[in-house]
Amino acid sequence: MKPPPFAYHDPSTLEEAISLLSTLPNARPLAGGQSMMPMLNMRFAQPDHLVDLNRIAGLDGVTVEPDGALTIGAMARQRVLEQHPEVARRCPLMVEALAQVGHRQTRNRGTIGGSLCHLDPAAELPLVAAAMEAVVRVAGPNGQRDIAFADFAQGYMTPEMEPEELLVAVRIPAQPAGAGHCFLEYARRHGDFAIASVAVMLVPDAVGRIAEARVALGGVGAVPLRLPEAEAALRGAPDVSRAVAATKTLEPMEDALVPAWYRRHLAGVLLGRALVIAQSRMGRA
């Protein structure tokens, strides 16, 4: 299991990287490598050119915007985010999720941008992005554009990006004041991709009622899903059982290891549990 032959480029600027991706045939970017390198070693990926993003300066920052949102550079390592005080303060959902992302050794290399672009339907960070209504910034030969994550996650492991484009940053609105969050997943072993996962955000009004509910589910569709019926059921006077019942309409993928019905069943179980935790963490706006 050795990587196939490719030409390697390690540009030091974003512009150079985009130029390489635009001009070289069959070129693929390399971020943290924790998904790309196994695919290379197994020769599932056979690029002619590999454009390593690790030498580009300034792509790994974590900044706090004036409105309190976080802007996280695509090359920020998962392990850095896990330990970052501003991430803990403004997006505790992400910290909760990161503890389930692979293992310490993969988080030391793995990046947030790599995970969002890889877009595994059961991965934790895309689910966080869906729940937080993140906006990703994509750069290409014609400049940069911002895409709501819901639009970015276009299909099964398929982000809304051209081959010569790069994800450069993700903007995550700060968790609203008093909001209760919870990230839960069920995997057979610690660090595995989840069979099903749920991210919940309950945003209170001034008197502590649920003004806005966000329910995002992973592992049960081609991309991370929001569950509007459940969210509606939770607003105002929350009807938890109706929210959980909304998972019954899910149509997860079937594979050799896990039956689709079980993923659907798990989604309901995890949602019920996550709502209890999120409600207990909710305060007032």
Partner: peptide, 8 residues
Amino acid sequence: AVRSCLML
């Protein structure tokens, strides 16, 4: 700590 099989 990193996986040396996943780095060039």
